[in-house]
Design a protein around this nucleic acid. Structure first.
Length: 448
DNA sequence: TCTGGGGTCCTAGGACCC
DNA sequence: TCTGGGGTCCTAGGACCC
């Protein structure tokens, strides 16, 4: 008899580990990585945690404290992290054909285990997990934790458990979860730490006496479905060892594509908001073309911060006449949408201070499966032009060729005539490392 | 001054149809 | 006096994930 097992391969403090991989001097040193605009902590090593710092804390509140305690701080370098992730997944795929890349730093692998000799299988899979760990570490410098269990949710529980192993100095941190309640760990795991249970639900669960992973695994699934949702039911069943979350060997097709960002400072001027939307639209449509997709739905949105007194969220949406990925067609629609939804003041005449804007595309179809249009609507796609645009921006760097509506990119701002239109809403990221693996000029240099 | 960005799924309720 | 029932589709909002 064979049964399916799921391994979760989870990179430890992934963004921090990527930074450390290229900086020998940071070995054993506390590190954290900040979100866009150096807003808040989004990745931190256990030793940074031990110093009292937490995920999500705004940087400006702890900047001095971090410096004082000698924590190495980085702006996020997504080029580097995405490339490192790609390399790691490639290594994992060399061990198995059954890999589901779940996120930038986690992959599930499906194994078959012979249930007639589970002890032998335990030894075999444990050795395999260790080999995966050492191969990834050797080839990329990133340490991973591996947890094997009967369901994906239990593999996630096991992955939490491997953090305890690391605390005890057990490396590589590998855990084989042959029983759902190994070492009574589930009794100690707060329900909030279970995969799929967030803040709102755990509050509600706790009120009805379900406080730990163990409690949830023993709760009545039908009742959970009735009182919460089918997602909660599945999670509970998975915790009791019954697999019901699909293993997705082939990544499902993308359903939406959002590009947005907070501004480095508040904006009141429509001109700069428009430029920001144009900028995000350019990024979104570039992604659309690189994924060989066309979209039929376009939305734009802008909002003031969550932390100000006067808040505003504006949004406008349009269904397009025909699927497109042409930036010029999309920009015309976005311009119209902007006029529809931009509001300068509230009813008392207070100016809204916007802190974020963005675009969203959806309603996708493949570029290869387009049918001939039924009617001539006087709009012409320019695939050749888009190809040249993307080619130039790839070859000579991002934003080499842009729509005028985007404003003037940084690299041209020294031209006097362009100064008036200079991009006002750029990103703050003063602590970024080099793109060691994707840009020749930034490759790591070793001096002997 | 300063609090990320990009996704998915589920559900309830309204519009609409016969 | 009396005002159906059953279905689908769409959307907004809420929850979650990393």
């Amino acid at each position: 008899m064979y049964k399916k097992l799921y391994a979760l391969i989870d990179c430890s403090s992934f963004y921090c580990s990527c930074e450390r991989a290229f900086r020998a001097d940071l070995k054993g040193k506390a590190i954290c990585v900040l979100s866009n605009n150096d807003g808040c902590i989004i990745s931190l090593t256990p030793d940074t945690k031990a110093l009292g710092f937490k995920m999500g804390t705004p940087y400006y509140q702890i900047k001095d404290d971090l410096a004082q305690k000698g924590v190495a701080v980085f702006s996020s370098n997504y080029c580097l992290y995405a490339d490192m992730s790609k390399r790691i997944v490639k290594i994992i795929r060399s061990f198995s054909d059954f890999v589901e890349q779940y996120s930038i730093d986690e992959s599930f692998v499906q194994f078959e285990a012979n249930t007639n000799n589970i002890e032998q299988e335990r030894i075999r899979l444990h050795a395999l997990a260790e080999e995966i760990h050492f191969t990834i570490l050797k080839k990329t410098g990133v340490p991973v934790r591996v947890s094997i269990a009967e369901t994906k949710t239990l593999a996630k529980v096991g992955s939490e458990y491997t953090k305890c192993l690391i605390k005890q100095g057990i490396v590589p941190a590998v855990c084989f979860w042959e029983h759902p309640d190994k070492d009574g760990y589930m009794k100690t795991l707060p329900v909030n730490d279970v995969w799929g249970i967030g803040r709102q639900w755990s509050k509600k669960l706790e009120m009805s006496g379900i406080k730990t992973a163990k409690d949830l695994s023993m709760a009545n699934p039908d009742l959970l479905k009735k009182n919460y949702s089918i997602v909660m039911e599945r999670t509970a069943r998975e915790l009791s060892g019954f697999s019901c979350i699909l293993f997705e060997l082939v990544a499902p097709e993308r359903k939406s594509l959002v590009r947005s960002r907070m501004f480095s400072h508040k904006i009141t001027d429509a001109k700069y908001l428009k430029q920001a939307i144009s900028f995000h639209l350019a990024r979104a449509s570039e992604k659309l073309r690189s994924d060989k997709l066309m979209a039929t739905e376009l939305s734009i949105f802008m909002s003031t911060g969550r932390h100000t007194e006067i808040t505003k969220y504006s949004y406008a949406h349009q269904t397009l006449l025909r699927p497109t990925n042409d930036i010029i067609i999309l920009a015309e629609v976005a311009d119209k949408l902007f006029k529809e939804c931009y509001v300068k003041n509230d009813k008392f005449g207070n100016e809204y201070k916007y802190s974020k804007a963005g675009v969203s595309l959806s309603g996708f179809s493949s570029i290869d499966k387009q049918s001939e249009p039924l009617f001539d609507i006087g709009i012409t796609e320019r695939p050749a032009l888009m190809k040249i645009l993307d080619g130039l921006n790839r070859k000579f760097g991002k934003h080499t060729v842009v729509l005028a509506s985007m404003g003037v990119p940084k690299k041209l701002q020294k031209i006097e005539a362009a100064k008036d239109d200079a991009i006002e809403w750029g990103m703050k990221r003063g602590l970024m490392s080099k793109r060691f693996t994707t840009v020749w000029e930034e490759i790591l240099q070793v001096k002997i």
